[in-house]
């Protein structure tokens, strides 16, 4: 008996990950295949993802730190940064509230037409960003039915900040809901029911039971939403009118600088957004490492 257990222990100790004689395992490939595949994957990801990222930072600093900083102190550059922050500060909180509401209704109840509603929420992901901007141009633009009323009320939407905000809201619309729905469906309703039966009211249940359970998924959804809101180009490009210093967001300002051959300036501005993307990725990786279980349901894109 003792011997048998020892055998098992020996067998088990060889099992994890890499056995010393990899060739003897029929469910793994020969070493040369393995290293060739790893080589292909590394080269492919380096050429497609890592080198572009490095290009952004080296090009940004290619003309020295002075030129790099000048891109942000330049009035048009500073205005672009301010506008991007303003638009994000409006769009992200609105989509956050919507995302939580939609996830609550969809995950905690069974109702007719639920899967159809889920599909509708996904629409902005499957629409070209250019179309996302165009629909607002058609709805509020100079040739639209609404335009005379808007004009009388001195409301300008197209080629102005409200249009940029609307287009940004549209493209970042599903992020929070998309992260929360599978997570909340996975968690079920037992804990909320327990809280309610112990006398908590709806708000207390949400703040003290549901929110702590979903906070990391919510944070991740908001991070993605924020990255996309600050970086949206196509939709905003269509509706903004590219008025320098007024309706140019950071991505539009990058295009302007790049097209006027101010590469160092364009990449300096781009490096800010690339940095934001890196922060988003690092936060995502840390969240997954630390709270992998709580995010498990969302690990499908």
């Amino acid at each position: 008996m003792a011997r048998f257990e020892q055998d098992v222990a020996v067998y088990d100790s060889r099992r994890p990950d890499e056995p010393p004689d990899a060739h003897s395992r029929p469910t793994s490939e020969p070493a040369w295949v393995k290293w060739t595949l790893i080589g292909i994957a590394v080269l492919f990801l380096a050429a497609l993802l890592l080198l572009p990222l490095l290009t952004v930072f080296t090009q940004a600093l290619s003309k020295g730190i002075g030129t790099f900083l000048a891109a942000f102190t330049d009035p048009a550059g500073a205005a672009a940064i301010r506008l991007t922050l303003l638009v994000t500060a409006i769009a992200v909180p609105l989509n956050l509230v919507f995302g939580v509401c939609a996830a609550w209704a969809i995950a905690k109840y069974e109702f007719w037409g639920k899967s159809f509603l889920t599909t509708l929420i996904d629409i902005p992901f499957s629409v070209s960003p250019v179309i996302s901007g165009m629909i607002y141009v058609i709805l509020f633009g100079a040739n639209s039915v609404l335009y005379p009323y808007l004009h009388d009320a001195h409301l300008q939407i197209v080629f102005a900040v409200p249009g940029i905000v609307l287009a940004t809201i549209f493209v970042t619309f599903p992020f929070v809901a998309r992260e929360l729905i599978p997570l909340m469906q996975d968690q079920g309703t037992a804990e909320e029911e327990a809280a309610l039966s112990l006398g908590a009211n709806g708000w207390q249940t949400f703040w003290r039971v549901t929110l702590p359970n979903i906070r990391w998924g919510l944070l991740y959804g908001v991070l993605l939403c924020n990255a996309r809101a600050m970086g949206e180009f196509g939709a905003v490009s269509v509706i903004s009118g590219h008025i320098r210093g007024k309706t140019n967001t950071m991505p539009l300002h990058i295009e302007l600088l790049f097209d006027s051959y101010n590469f160092a300036g364009a990449f300096a501005m781009a490096s800010l957004l690339a940095l934001l993307a890196l922060v988003t990725l690092v936060a995502k990786t840390l969240l997954e490492l630390r709270y992998g279980d709580e995010l498990a349901a969302t690990r499908r894109h």
């Binding site: 990801l45 990255a227 991505p251 993307a277 890196l278």
Partner: peptide
């Protein structure tokens, strides 16, 4: 490598565009 795969989700398309074309 695993983390960097998500870069295209997070990197604004205009930034990707100027980086790739350079």
């Amino acid at each position: 490598l695993d983390a960097i795969v998500d870069l295209p989700f997070a990197l604004p398309t205009a930034v990707a565009g100027i980086a790739l074309s350079t």
